[in-house]
């Protein structure tokens, strides 16, 4: 099996499968911070999406081209001015939200260029993270693998934080999946879930 086999990919990145479940066949997709293009390729192979990735790293640009996906080299922090309003069905931000500086502006931009937004992020409210803090340390885990001094994550949040953020921005949450490893978490998600995926759109 190749490293990009859809089944293997879904196992390595449980948010991929969760996101794919929400994306209808043939949708147009913009993937912000698309990394090596793995998610876009997965969505192309499983959902026949048409789409583009935006990525800042040169090495990832090469990887995306090798993965056969369209990629535009650029910095999310400087906005999405190259993209027209309502150009996409879905704008994705997979495991990137917590590393953005202008998070609020970016979420607004997502909903300008896309009909719906999808974000996944590590839950800072997970009990393991809380335990770390109670013990006097910044959390380090599978989802948050960095030390406090080398982390790219500048805007970590809990599920409750994100939901309040959406309410303040008049963003309507349509769907939520909370997971730990590959298992869905329904009980006390803000405590027991290590990762969350949200689907949302502009509020009325």
């Amino acid at each position: 099996m190749s490293a990009h086999d859809p089944i293997e990919l879904a196992a390595a990145r449980p948010d991929f499968a969760a996101i794919a479940e929400w994306i209808p066949e043939g949708a147009s997709v913009l993937d912000l911070g698309c990394g090596d293009g793995g998610l876009l390729r997965y969505l192309k192979e499983t959902r026949s999406v048409r789409g583009y990735g935006v990525e800042i790293s040169g090495a990832n640009i090469v990887a995306c081209i090798r993965n056969g996906v369209n990629v535009i080299q650029g910095d999310l922090e400087s906005g999405l001015s190259g993209f027209e309003s309502n150009a996409f069905d879905y704008v994705l931000l997979s495991q990137t939200l917590q590393a953005t500086r202008h998070t609020e502006a970016l979420v607004r931009e997502m909903l300008r260029v896309g009909r719906e937004g999808v974000v996944s992020f590590p839950n800072f409210g997970h009990w393991k993270a809380r335990m770390n803090v109670i013990r006097g340390h910044m959390p380090v885990s599978r989802e948050l693998p960095y030390q406090w001094y080398d982390t790219p994550n500048v805007h970590l949040c809990t599920l409750r934080d994100f939901e309040k953020f959406c309410a303040d921005l008049h963003v309507r949450i349509l769907d939520r999946r909370v997971m730990t490893r590959q298992r869905e978490v329904r009980l006390l998600p803000n405590l027991l879930g290590s990762m969350a995926v949200y689907r949302f759109r502009r509020g009325q």
């Binding site: 583009y52 040169g58 640009i61 081209i65 535009i72």
Partner: peptide, 17 residues
């Protein structure tokens, strides 16, 4: 790149340092 995006062409863009 923008003009190609607006026309839904397949396009990749690399900005080389």
């Amino acid at each position: 790149v923008s003009a190609l995006l607006h026309n839904r062409r397949n396009v990749s863009y690399a900005e080389i340092a």
